[in-house]
Amino acid sequence: MRINGQVYNLGLDNRTSLLDALRDHVGLTGTKKGCDHGQCGACTVLIDGKRVLSCLSFAVMNEGREVTTVEGLASADDSLHPMQQAFIDNDAFQCGYCTPGQIMSAIGCISEGHAGSEDDIREYMSGNLCRCAAYPNIVAAILQARDEMRRA
């Protein structure tokens, strides 16, 4: 499995979810566990560029795939991804726990072409719960990042 561009040979229990593999075995704890049953979106990562829930995927099923987590977003010079900056600018979180999942999902949302309007963003970001309820700010952040990413 490649994670953020690096190859890992993990030798895990078949039962280990991709989420637990990332957190407990690779030490990438940016990806969060909020329910472990596909109901909150906190564990969202990109697999081969698509946003998915790492809690509902067994790690063994991802052999040979490319996983991107929040730790893999910032560029080599450590400058933030436009989505990360947009989340800061728009105060798109409070406790910050759902945030890595929101950011990964938001990036997926834009690349899928589902960030055309505010209503689209709301609908296609509804798989990421935010109990602090930063939703309006999340939508604003995605609009900002979308436009910046288009320009770039």
Partner: peptide
């Protein structure tokens, strides 16, 4: 149905 992430999976 479900969410965008689930629909991708």
């Amino acid at each position: 149905a479900a969410s965008a992430q689930i629909r991708n999976m």
